[in-house]
Design a protein around this nucleic acid. Structure first.
Lengths: 193, 193
DNA sequence: GATAAAAATTAAAGTAGTTTAATAAATCAC
DNA sequence: GTGATTTATTAAACTACTTTAATTTTTATC
C-alpha cells in the first residue's frame, strides 16, 4: 500500500509517532477503480471516507431531467465521500465515479471512530480539513450568487489549472452550472480576445 | 452573561465538567448589536467567532454593481464569522451585519487556540459543527446547480420556516440568488395555486 | 489503424430570470 | 401618530443562458 501521500497529507496538520502511524495505516484499505467505475451510487450507504492517491473522481447528482451536476472534483491528495451518508449511514445524496483510473485509501466509519478514540489528534486533523473545505465551498456559493458564467469559468481556470487540463469541457460545464454549449461559446469569445 | 444556550449547544456533542465549563465561559465576551449595525466589514480582520444568543445576522458580499449576496443567515444557536479571515487573520471576504437587535458571545482566535490546548474535546466539538455546516453548504451548492429559482424558494420555506417569517423578501431573494422582483413573481404564481 | 462513440463547435430559436420604472403597501423614526 | 423611507408588486422590454439540431473533432476500442 502506498501510504506516502496520505502520511504527508496528515503531517501537514498533526504529528504522529510510530505507533500512531502504524495504527492509522492498519485501519486503511486500498481500492482501485477503472475509469467510469462507480464508487458510490445515490441511495446506497456511503461506507467509507476516501483519500485519493492516484487519479480523479467526481461527486455529482443527476436531476429529474437526467442532467448531471458536479459538486466536486477530487484528485491526488484529496478526501472525497458523501459525508452526510457516511456519518448517518442514511442513503447517499450523491454519486461518485472515476474520471480516470484511480487508486484510493478507504477508512470505514467504524474504524474512523476507533481512530478518534485511540488517537484524538485526528479530531484536530479532520477539523482542519473541514475548515478548509468549508471555506472553499463558501467561496463557491458566493461565486454562484455573484458571478456570471464567464467569470466563474475564468476563476475556475485560475484556481484549478491542473483540473482544466485533465477533465473534459462537459465536466467543467457540469461543475460551473452551465451547458457544454454555452461553455463552448464562452471559450470562443475568450479565445478571440 | 446568558450562557444557557451556548452550553446546551455544546452539550449536544461533548460533555464538559465544571472546571472545563468555567474555563470556556471565561474565554467569552458578550456583545450587543443594534439592527443594521455591522459586526464585520469586508477587508477588516475577523477577530472572533460568534455565537448568537438572540437576534439575527447575515453574512454577505457586495458585488461590483453594488448588489448584495447573502451567504448565510444566522439566528439563535448558530455560529457565524468569516472563517478564512479568522483563521489566517487576513482581510475578510464578507460583511456581517444585524437584521435585528442581536446579542452574541465572542471568542478570539487566541482564546480558541488556548481552549483547544486546554480542553482538546473542543477539537471534536468544532469538527462536528463544521461537518454539519459542510453538509448544509454542499446541499445548497447542489440546489444552485440543479434547481430553478422557484424550486429553491420552495425548499427554503420548507427548510427554514422561522427565517421566512423573520427576514424580508429582499433578503430571501439575495440568499436565493435572484432579484426581489422575480421572487415577487414566483410568490404570486405560487399563491394562485 | 479503422471504426464507433463521445465530446466540442456553431447557429438559430426559445425561456428563465433581469432591468427599469411606476405604484402600492409596510415599516421606521421622531 | 405622522411623514419619510424602505419594501413589495406589477408590467413591459431586455439579456444571459438553454435547447435543439446539424457538423466537426477528438477519444476510445477492438
Amino acid at each position: 500500500m502506498n501510504t506516502n501521500l496520505i502520511l504527508h497529507n496528515i503531517s501537514r496538520h498533526i504529528q504522529l509517532d510510530k505507533t500512531e502511524t502504524d495504527f492509522f495505516i492498519s485501519l486503511l484499505q486500498e481500492k482501485k477503480l477503472k475509469r467510469k467505475e462507480l464508487l458510490l451510487r445515490q441511495g446506497e450507504t456511503c461506507k467509507t471516507e476516501n483519500f485519493i492517491t492516484k487519479g480523479c473522481l467526481r461527486t455529482y447528482t443527476i436531476d429529474d431531467n437526467g442532467f448531471e451536476h458536479i459538486l466536486m472534483f477530487g484528485i491526488e491528495d484529496w478526501w472525497v465521500g458523501d459525508l452526510y451518508s457516511f456519518l448517518t449511514q442514511n442513503p447517499a445524496t450523491y454519486f461518485i465515479d472515476a474520471l480516470e483510473d484511480t487508486e484510493i485509501l478507504q477508512i470505514t466509519k467504524h474504524n474512523l471512530d476507533k481512530l478518534y478514540e485511540r488517537v484524538p489528534k485526528f479530531e484536530r486533523f479532520f477539523r482542519i480539513i473541514l475548515q478548509n473545505a468549508f471555506i472553499a465551498q463558501q467561496n463557491r456559493i458566493n461565486q454562484n450568487l455573484s458571478f456570471t458564467a464567464e467569470q466563474r469559468y475564468i476563476d475556475f481556470i485560475k484556481r484549478y489549472p491542473q483540473l482544466e487540463q485533465r477533465v473534459s469541457q462537459k465536466q467543467v460545464a457540469a461543475y460551473l452550472g452551465i451547458t457544454p454549449v454555452f461553455l463552448s461559446m464562452i471559450r470562443k469569445k475568450f479565445a478571440s480576445k
